[in-house]
Simulated assay, not measured.
Amino acid sequence: MSKTGEGMKIISCCSPQHKEISDNLPCCPKQEMPERELVPSIVSKVSAEWTWRDYLGQIRCRISSFRNSYAVKPGFYAVGSPDRESDIFVSANYKLSFDILRRALKGLNAWLLVLDTKGINVWCAAGKGTFGTDELIKRIVESQLEKVVSHKRIIAPQLGAPGVAAHIVQQKTGFEVHYGPVDAQDIRKYLEAGYKATEDMRRVKFTVWDRLVLTPMEMIPAFKIYAIYAALMFFIMGLKPSGIMFKDGLANGLPFIFLGFLAVL
């Protein structure tokens, strides 16, 4: 079951502490604003900075099944002090995906539209259908984006493209879907280039470092099975009519234990 990550501080941007952006938000209208411009949805402000809890959550996601419940609440968020001209970025509600995006937006004023992907990352969710056309349309309508921004542009992650029919989204909502770069770190360059991604920005890279980052997630479950295997080899090789001989178990079982270790690697 999804739950909001503990390391992320979320507060209403309509609160008195954030008057600098509340005056620009339709969800925080002044008394003289006409009724038709009011936006009933609640916008939450999040920081682009990571806390120690965010870093800890990232580590736990890499080494355990903790990632299966690491999620944020779907909805509408603000980074910095966005206004009606600010860009809208779409993300999955898998918290690590959300965190990487908000960190990449440091120094920018932007809106974040978070889809309910059941706590699954963008790429996998696009394949499963949870990061999809219907969910995107639903969030656009519920957030009443046409009252929040003056443009008709939303920026979705490129890896989510397989799940989104951009032409249907535009037909249903009027918003044009732009696909940003593969790597969130290239977002600033993408914006500076006038919402144009270079060929390099479109390429999915899988470097040695990327492989090493994923290694613990594959090895740790295997080591759990390996521990059982090693104990079993020690027991079998040390088993004698007179009982279990620890010295024999270690001497005879060590080659098999070592080979099992190499197999895990």
Rank of each mutant, 00 (worst) to 15 (best):
G163V: 05
C14K: 02
F66Q: 04
I100N: 05
P216T: 00
I168R: 11
L136G: 11
K30F: 13
I21E: 12
N121P: 05
E146F: 10
V213D: 05
E146M: 05
K45N: 10
A227W: 01
V79S: 00
A92F: 05
Y179A: 06
I257A: 06
L56N: 06
Y179S: 08
N121A: 14
D87M: 02
N252H: 08
K9D: 15
V90N: 00
K224T: 06
Q170V: 03
M8Y: 09
I42H: 11
A110V: 02
P29Y: 03
H151I: 02
L101R: 00
S2D: 13
T4E: 15
G238M: 09
F76E: 03
G7D: 14
G119M: 08
P241S: 14
I21Y: 07
A197H: 06
M217H: 07
E32P: 06
G194A: 03
F66G: 07
G253L: 01
P216S: 05
F175A: 11
F206V: 02
V72N: 02
L239T: 08
G80R: 03
M219N: 01
L214Y: 06
I120V: 14
K19S: 15
W209N: 13
L25E: 14
Y190L: 07
W123G: 11
V169T: 06
G75E: 04
I236R: 01
G129A: 09
Q17I: 02
G129P: 06
H167G: 07
Q58N: 09
L254E: 09
I42E: 14
T130N: 11
F131R: 06
L25Q: 15
I257W: 01
R102M: 06
H18F: 15
A78Q: 01
E176G: 04
S91P: 12
Y77E: 11
A71P: 05
L145W: 10
P241A: 15
E20N: 12
A222N: 04
Y226C: 13
N252E: 12
A78D: 07
M201Q: 11
V169K: 01
H151N: 13
S97W: 00
R67M: 15
A78I: 00
L56G: 14
A125T: 05
Q185P: 01
Y229L: 10
T133I: 10
Y190P: 06
W52G: 03
I155C: 10
V204F: 12
N24R: 05
I21Q: 11
G129M: 12
Q58Y: 07
F235N: 09
A166H: 04
S91I: 02
M219E: 10
L159W: 04
I100F: 03
I220D: 12
G180R: 03
I225N: 10
C124L: 08
